[in-house]
Design a protein around this nucleic acid. Structure first.
Length: 264
DNA sequence: ATGGTAGCCTTGCTA
């Protein structure tokens, strides 16, 4: 089961790139972020024609997440639990072939020292509490998305330059580690312990051409999902196209579900 | 020192 995450920065503008990538990469599941549209304007017809159903949490202008699945899917959440007053569309979750998959768009949090940064840390605490609940079920799950977190200095071209940024703030990184301490696995870093690789390059200043990027899009796997992890890669091809998203997809492969039968 | 890019249904805000 191939599960991907991609911040498309507008589903409307990026639809041609998305459809081409579905055809080329053939993921079973894709988690999208920054779709930037309400559910009524989501391109369900084009997505269905490509062989996928969509679970959508929409919002006008900002945020917006979705899960595209080539297999039957049951939606389990359309908002991150833990604060009913929070209407930002940053979380959608579904059950697909026995795997719980969440599309996560964690708040950016800049500038540090404002209510935006407090919102980010609070959102991460809510995500942690929700993950704790999922862990108790002992079912495989994948939190896939734009976490807006640079986990370590190996995930940024210029650590000193990002010291004051909400994506690299010590409190942000500590909250991210708290997710890992629950028993979640950063799939890319686990399979590529020494590789400096990025999933995001700013539109400005020729960041892509100069490879000045960040690794902020992550696949966090539960123990039962990690048992099945066979591959995890960043696909830089979509970032090379005309009018690209500033993010590129990251994907992982989960092997077959254990049968519980003894081997001979 | 400044502005540099992209998307939204706007003329500023978010990233």
């Amino acid at each position: 089961m191939k599960i991907a995450s991609w911040n498309v920065n507008s589903i409307k503008v990026r639809l041609p790139h998305l459809l081409a990538w579905l055809k080329a990469a053939k993921p079973d599941v894709v988690c999208l972020q920054e779709t930037k549209t309400v559910e009524d304007n989501f391109p369900f017809l084009e997505i269905e024609a490509a062989g996928y159903t969509a679970a959508v949490a929409g919002q006008k202008t900002y945020n917006g997440v979705a899960i595209l699945s080539a297999h039957p899917m049951t939606v389990t959440e359309k908002r991150l639990p833990g604060n009913k007053a929070d209407e930002q569309a940053r979380y959608v979750e579904a059950e697909i072939e026995g795997v719980r998959v969440a599309s996560v768009y964690l708040p950016n949090g800049n500038p540090v020292g404002t209510e935006k940064f407090d919102y980010k840390l609070g959102w991460m605490e809510r995500l942690k509490r929700h993950a704790e609940g999922l862990l108790k079920t002992e079912t495989p799950f994948v939190l896939a998305g734009d976490f807006n977190v640079i986990p370590s200095k190996a995930d940024v071209h210029d650590p000193e330059g990002w010291e004051k940024d909400a994506l690299y703030d010590p409190r942000t990184r500590a909250k991210f580690r708290a997710l890992l301490y629950l028993g979640l696995t950063d799939a890319f870093r686990t399979l590529h312990p020494q590789t400096m690789a990025f999933t995001y390059w700013d539109y400005q200043g020729g960041a892509w051409q100069r490879d000045l990027g960040l690794r902020i899009d992550h696949l966090l796997l539960s123990p039962q999902a990690t048992d099945r992890l066979t591959a995890c890669e960043i696909d830089k091809a979509p970032r090379k196209l005309e009018k690209p998203s500033d993010h590129t997809p990251v994907w992982c492969e989960l092997g077959p579900e254990p049968t519980g039968q003894m081997s001979a």
